[in-house]
Structures are given as C-alpha cells and as structure tokens.
Nucleic acid binder design. Structure first.
Lengths: 342, 342
DNA sequence: TGATGGACCGAAAACCTTTTCGGTAGTTTT
DNA sequence: AAAACTACCGAAAAGGTTTTCGGTCCATCA
C-alpha cells in the first residue's frame, strides 16, 4: 500500500522504527533521545545511533498534540507591502527563530475577511500566540474573532486599551529631532510634515512643538502637512524659502519628503548643511545614504520593536500578561545633512 | 487539574465535546462537519449548531498527524532584509493563503548554520514542501540536509541543475530595455551597470548587447560596472557625458544608479527625456515615482515569481515534479524618463 | 411475508510521541 | 538473611481527528 507521503522514497522513520533498530521499547527510545534520566548510557548510545542511521526527526505534530502547545506563533500583518512591516517581521522572526518556535506568516492585505480567515487558520493550527502588525501607527480594530491565546499588537496599537500593544515613540521622535537641531545651533526651524491623517505625523509634531517651546524658540511658519512624497517635499520647500527665507533647518515628515526638500534647496542655491540643516524620519537607507549630502534621520527601531513584541508574547504565553500600550524609543542617526563642521 | 493551556479560559472544545452536545458519536460529528455523505440533514444541522455554540475549531495537528501531511510549507529566505525577498514572499504567501496552506517563514540571515537549523525544524514540523528564496540571482548551494519533500528554489537557482528553480529572465530584461529605447528613436545608447560580480548585471548586459546588435547599433562606450548606488550613477554619468557627449540614452543597472544618472544629467544641463532617455531596472517604486522625471524601469515581476514558485511547489507535492531552471519574463514599466512627446 | 437494499449511525483503529506507573534485577542496609 | 533501595526498562494511556467496517432500522420488492 502506498503511503500518504506519495511516492517519494521510503516512509519517514518513526520513533518505533528507532526503538526497534536499537532493540528497546518506544518509551525508552523517547527517554533516551530527550535526555530523560534512568536510561543506561550504553542504551542511550544505541538509540542515538539508530536515530542517526534512520535520519529520525521527531514528529512535531504528535508532540504538539500531546503537549497541548504547538511551539508555533502567528505573525499577522495588515499589509506586508508597506515599508514598515518587514523590519518588524525580521525582528520577531529573529527573536523566535533562535529558540524552538516557528512562525506562521499571514498577510491580510488590508482585508478584514482575509484577516478573519487567517486567524481561523491559525487558531486551528493551535498557535501558542499571535502578533498583529499594523501598517501605520494609527490604532486598529482588535481581532474580530476571540482567540484564547495571547495577542500582541505591534506598530499599530489595538483600539482596545486592554490589549497589549507596542509602538514606536513618535512624540519622542519629534522631540529628538528638534533637540538635535537645537544642539547644532539652529534657531529658525521649519517643519514640513506628511499626511496629516496619520497619527505618526501629528505625534511627531506634538513632540517637536514641545521641544521647541522648551528651547525658547518659535517655529518658522506653520507645520506644512501634505503627503509622504518627494514631490510634496519639493513643493513645500519652495513655498518655505519663498515665505521664510531666514529658515536654517527643516524637519521633514519622512525621508522621501526630505529628499524632495534637499533637491529644492540645492536648486535655490542653499547648501546643506551649511545654510540649512535637513532631517528626515524613518531612516530608509536607500534614501538616506543615496542622497547628497547623506541624510540625518530618526530611525524608528522597527527591528527592535519586532523583537520586543516577540518577547512580550513569550511572557504572555507564560501567563505574565502586560496590558496597554508600550512605546519604544527611536534612535537618531546623524549623517551629513545636519552637521556643519568636520 | 489545570490544563496545559494555562489559566486562559476553558479548555478549547474538541470534536467529542461537539458530539456530546449534539447527541451523536464523534465519527458522525466528524462526517457531518466534513460534508461526508450518509448523515441525516437534521443530524448534520444539530452538529453544526453544537460546533458553533462551542466555537469548535478542528485541531490541525491531529488532522495532520493522521493524514500524513500537515498543510504547511516552509518559506526559507537567505536574507530577508534585501529588497527582493519581500515581493517574492508576498506572491508565495498569496498563492498559498488563498487555499488551505499555511506558511512558515524562516530567515537564515545568510548563515549556513542557521539555515540547517531552520530546515531541521521545518522537517520536524512535517511541512509538505519548501521554497528557498535567494538574495541575488546568483546560483546558490543546494540545501545541506536531505529533505524528502519537494523543494523549489526561487530567484536564486540551485547550483544543482536537477533541482527545480524559478528565476527572472535578466537576459530578456536587458533586451527589453534596449528594444524600448530603440523604439523611442534612440541610437546612441550607453550602459551604466552595477556590481559586475552579480550575474544579474552580466545577464542584462548580454541581453542588451544582443538587442543592440540586432538593431544594427554600436554601444556608446563600454559597459560601466561599479556598484548599485546613486553615487556610482552620478560619477559614471559625469564620465559618460565627458567622453561621449553625443549619448542620447542611458540604460542603468538599477533604479538607484538611474537616480544618480538623472541628477548628474540635470546638473550638466541635459534634460530628460528630451536630450537623453534614462531607464532603470527593478522598478522600485519609491525611487521611480519620486524622481524628476519619473523613471521608466524594467520590473522583475517578483510577486508573480513568488506565485509561480508556490504553484510549482503545489504541483511537485502532487508528484508532478519539473526539474531545471525556469525563467520568468520581466515587464517594462514606461514612465516619463524615456518618452519624448505627450 | 421474507428478503433485499439503502440510509444512517457508532465502535474502533490508526497516526506518533510523551509520560506515568509498575516491574525486574541487582545492590545496599540492618 | 531479610528488607529496602536504586537503576533501568517496558506496557499503556493520552492527545484529537478521520476512516473503515459492521450494525440497526425502515422501506421496497418479489
């Protein structure tokens, strides 16, 4: 009779095959391989030899079925295509991958139906926990299905404050940007942001404004909201130097905006960083290191955020469940666009 | 006695709970839920009601254990951080996600030890197949461990020609670029490439040279190899217009190089596309749509490649195993940087 | 009326591993 | 010498599902 594994080679070896070859019982074989005590060292050796010979690989399904936990977690992204999911994913995968946990990747593509479908599949596979990665830092609705394993929301917090969420500290990021520029001796600082509908944009503004006030400075002009694009950066910069030619620093909503700002400044004969300092957010390397001059940017530490989410999930699986939103600090990466000397 | 699931709520419902509540046997409940015949419609309904009431979700581990196949596949990336893994991942996830297959994500981080570790874990979890995603199109060594499930290599082919690999058609991509430029009336075409150690760079050159010859054109200067960066693009472009001021089109190794070329051309007073056409590879949106003018680029269709790999794996699981390297065509995305009118 | 068949249901085996518990043999203690 | 340990090993149960096979009941046919 053909095996369900199809025609590929012989059936994969099972523990009882190993036991038979080693001349012991299954239970002894199991104990030997798992390092349990009360098995004679010679016996243990025989079992190991048999296992190696048969290329035995224990069936995690059977083990999981028995143990009641599968040693897997689900990583559910709202939108994988975005710029921010991947580093978070990497961080989480890293934190788990070191141990014995495997990661199911699911992309909901921004579709609620698809999300529910994936959650159902994950529940059915008896994942031990779930990380939900949002596509922006705006709060997102909590999972539609009740799941009886712990859930950690990363990047985008859950709307339910009782859930556990881990997000980057955008307020602190805005503050960090201003403090750096002030430390560089800039006093006439403008802010060209991105899409005003993003809480990330507004939060950074809050932090920036706080820091400006504390430094005793007035902002140059209003915060200019627009879109997260280079062309918006170019347009907004043109308006800025028209209305406020005295500006000596520009905080930009993200690195794309900053690239646009850099272009326009150069075309208007302003040199960076001598005349004007420019600073971006996100630290998207292809943009920050390709530009002239290279761009100082605030890095949201996303990989670390992914790792933190994984650790939080670990703790939650062990029944130490934090609640509420935790923010993680960002990190300033200083390049040429903000420092005058050297 | 507390359950292994910890203190979280009641134990998850099992099929026998459902059966008990519906007043039938487990086997009948199973048949009812799985749409097998020979179960009375009223009985079936009672079972469904009971299942809904208990939020029953079948245990895939038990099912997989019995069936001999788990309904999972492994997605093993050499390096997730790269620009190219993610779209392939998305395509594969998409192709599987629609069905009943869940995807394990593993990132080897370019480390052979870690790769083996992941492969072992996947084998232990009894995945039904494996997709190995490389980080460049250069051939990679085959998996160190023998696995008795089908393996499909994506993006980077396996060094073993007996393995099944799916890669983008870089030769065709180079050809496509030239043919487009020729169709646009360009006759003095230069080629500023990237790192010469990448087979992708060399393959595109092969295709480009073929197409030039077929069009009866001589290339303008030698192919300039360097690195995949904007700054190389800027430097190479400066040299190019110095030595070959007559150039009217530049094929660039990737979009970053193209961005650099665009910058230098503008600074030297050449307008794009009127004086010079510029064309990139990869179609990295943040670069191609942010630039002035927007950049024509050859898209490697990576998401489609991921889907193709998933489909190939499906077929292989069903014992229809293709062998050897299959190339997938690229796709030209025409934007402003190559077309003179409109 | 007896036989045949079909519709429906349930018992039990199978998948593979881990753990518990009981048993055997040999060794030490009193 | 009897009793109590210790070290080691194996039988069996448990985990949840699917499938096979045998059984019951009722309707149909001759």
């Amino acid at each position: 009779m053909t095996r369900p594994t199809g025609s590929r080679g012989a059936r994969t070896a099972t523990l009882s095959d190993v036991a038979k070859l080693a001349g012991v019982s299954v239970s002894t074989a199991s104990k030997a391989l798992n390092g349990r005590n009360h098995v004679h060292s010679q016996t243990r050796e025989r079992v190991f030899e048999a296992a190696a010979q048969l290329q035995f690989s224990p069936n995690s399904l059977a083990r999981g079925l028995l143990a009641g936990r599968s040693g897997t977690v689900g990583l559910l992204t709202t939108d994988l295509s975005g710029r921010f999911s991947l580093p978070i994913l990497m961080g989480a995968e890293d934190a788990f991958g070191a141990g014995q946990v495997s990661v199911f990747l699911c992309d909901a593509r921004g579709d609620a139906i698809r999300e529910r479908h994936h959650v159902q599949a994950l529940v059915s596979r008896r994942v031990d926990g779930l990380i939900v990665v949002g596509s922006s830092t705006d709060p997102r609705p909590k999972l539609a299905d009740r799941v009886d394993v712990p859930v950690v929301y990363a990047y985008a917090p859950s709307e339910d404050p009782e859930d556990q969420s881990i997000v980057p500290d955008n307020v602190g990021a805005g503050r960090m940007a201003i403090e750096h520029l002030v430390a560089c001796g800039r006093t006439r600082i403008a802010h060209i942001s991105g899409d005003r509908h993003y809480s990330a944009a507004r939060d950074r503004d809050v932090g920036a404004t706080e820091a400006l006030t504390e430094a005793g400075l007035e902002p140059v002009g209003e915060v200019a909201y627009g879109s997260w694009t280079e062309s918006w950066g170019r347009a907004a910069a043109a308006m800025l130097i028209d209305r406020h030619p005295e500006v000596d620093a520009v905080v930009c909503g993200n690195d794309q905006v900053a690239r646009g700002v850099l272009d326009t400044l150069r075309e208007h004969g302003r040199t960076v960083p001598e005349d004007v300092a420019v600073l971006g957010f996100d630290n998207w390397e292809v943009l920050t290191t390709g530009s002239r001059p290279q761009l100082t940017s605030v890095d949201p530490n996303l990989e670390e955020l992914g790792r933190a989410a994984a650790r939080a999930l670990f703790d939650a699986i062990d029944d130490e469940h934090d609640r509420g939103v935790r923010t993680l600090p960002c990190r300033l990466v200083i390049r040429e666009s903000t420092v005058r000397d050297r």
